[in-house]
Design a protein around this nucleic acid. Structure first.
Length: 133
RNA sequence: ACUACCAGCCGAACUAUCGUCUUGUUAGCAAUAACAGGAAGGAAAGUCUGGACAGCACAGGGCAAUACACCGGUGAAUAGCCGGGUGGUGCCAAGCACCAACAGAAAGUGCCACAGAAAAUAACUGCCCCGCGCAAGCAGGGUGAGGGUGAAAAUGUGAGGUAAGAGCUCACAGCAGGUAUAAGUAAUUAUGCCAGCGGGUAAACCUUGUAUGCUGAAAUGCCACGUAUACCAGCGCCUGAAGACGGCCCGUCUGAUGCUGGAGGGUAGGCAGAUUGAUUUUGCAAAGUAAUUUGCAAAACAGAUAAAUGAUAGUUUAGAAACAGAAUCCGGCUUAUGAGCUGGUAGUUUUU
RNA sequence: GGUCCUGUGGCCGAGUGGCUAGGCAGAGCUCUGCAAAAGCUCGUACAGCGGUUCGAAUCCGCUCGGGACCU
């Protein structure tokens, strides 16, 4: 296990095409201030993206703030999910959409992120089980 | 001294751990790794403006549309900036401060509610003369601002003049026009003469002058991948469909495996554009009232492409602060802005 | 990133520069034994600030909000 909690280009969703596909056919669930869109991929690796609607936060500074906090929380806590996917030889695309009207603080985002990640791990496990059956 | 407002300056610093983008070097086939360096603003914002740059066009003419509008300077350019003029407002005045979308109402058209006789042509009422009539009044003629209003009433005051009156005449004052002289680069100012005095509104239409080809980096060029030069409908193939001059018309040019529409298929990756340029800041010197320009020296300048500056802990300051996040790049304008500092204005209190 | 449109009571919506219509909703009154229906009456309405004008919802400038289009 690496000592770095990295989050560079390869681990973010960069392709317009993939994002279109994710939003068209991906599955969704909601956790408190976030909505999560996810889809299992054939290729290995975990990719993520964040978006904040400009209708809710009119100022670019606020949108950047939310995105940074979300990315930071994800970066520090995504290791278990990554390891699980590596074990199962699976890929996953995740997209976070912030939907609350209040500007969040660091505590809130940090506490909510594990909830989402645990749920995702559960989903991955179930998918593997059904495939085996 | 405090408070409020206005203008300007400034736009926290340091350490540790983890992390993002990028440049260079080294290693590696590559993925990547290591080391060194760089990484938001005064407004990056609004998109209100002026350009650079790129593509298409570049025989021309007319109409339309839009913008601007005192003069000179500045600058790549502007609706910016600087200086001057004129006008307005404030202070008793000199003078000072602030403000001005500041061409034309004597080219034409429109509009001016309510009130008022009347909102610009006149009419009504009034005044005067003559005639008729006992009188009220009637008929004819003269006259033009006396008529309570209104934001605005035919330039104002005084005198002459007259039957009554009237810039009808005169004096003083005001207004705008022409012309001459003087000052000034000019706007304009001063004085004289001539002929006048028919409200306001052009941020109503408009007129005059000046400027503007259109589209914006999601422009544009190249490479790679891939498909359908197929199908349907219409028009046309030299008796001319359509396109270009991108608002329209004339006119000119191009023009045939073509053009338009429908349904459908494919791609949506990479490189360039693209970050050092009319650059910014500081210091010194020179020119200029100033904006600004020139020379020398030094320093600085991000470059992403679902889009990068963050998180945690601690310290200092003052409470771990306001407005706020680059997306082609520059000039200006406008708007937002905490604490502190500087200057100005107003108020309150204290002392002299 | 760029180009446009728009803002009138709680809601919808008309409005040549001269007192801001109308409908729905709400409140009160009349009618009724009680309601409904009907009738009458009522209210901080022109997004904000500044300018032009005698006078601005309207014209002009700036700001704020809402919406659409190009891609």
């Amino acid at each position: 296990m690496s000592k770095h909690f990295t989050l560079h280009k390869k681990q973010r969703l960069k392709s317009h095409k993939k994002i279109e596909k994710l939003f068209n056919s991906g599955l969704r669930f909601g956790v408190a201030p976030f909505r999560v869109v996810y889809q299992l991929e054939a290729t290995t690796g975990l990719q993520m993206g964040v978006t904040v609607p400009s209708k809710i936060f009119k100022k670019a500074v606020d949108r950047n703030r939310v995105k940074r906090l979300t990315r930071e929380a994800y970066r520090l806590q995504c290791k278990p999910l990554q390891n699980l996917l590596a074990q199962q030889q699976k890929g996953l695309s995740v997209f976070f959409i912030y939907t609350d009207k209040q500007l969040p603080d660091w505590e809130l985002v940090r506490n909510k992120m594990p909830v989402i990640l645990n749920k995702l791990m559960q989903i991955v496990n179930e998918a593997v089980v059904t495939n085996i059956k």
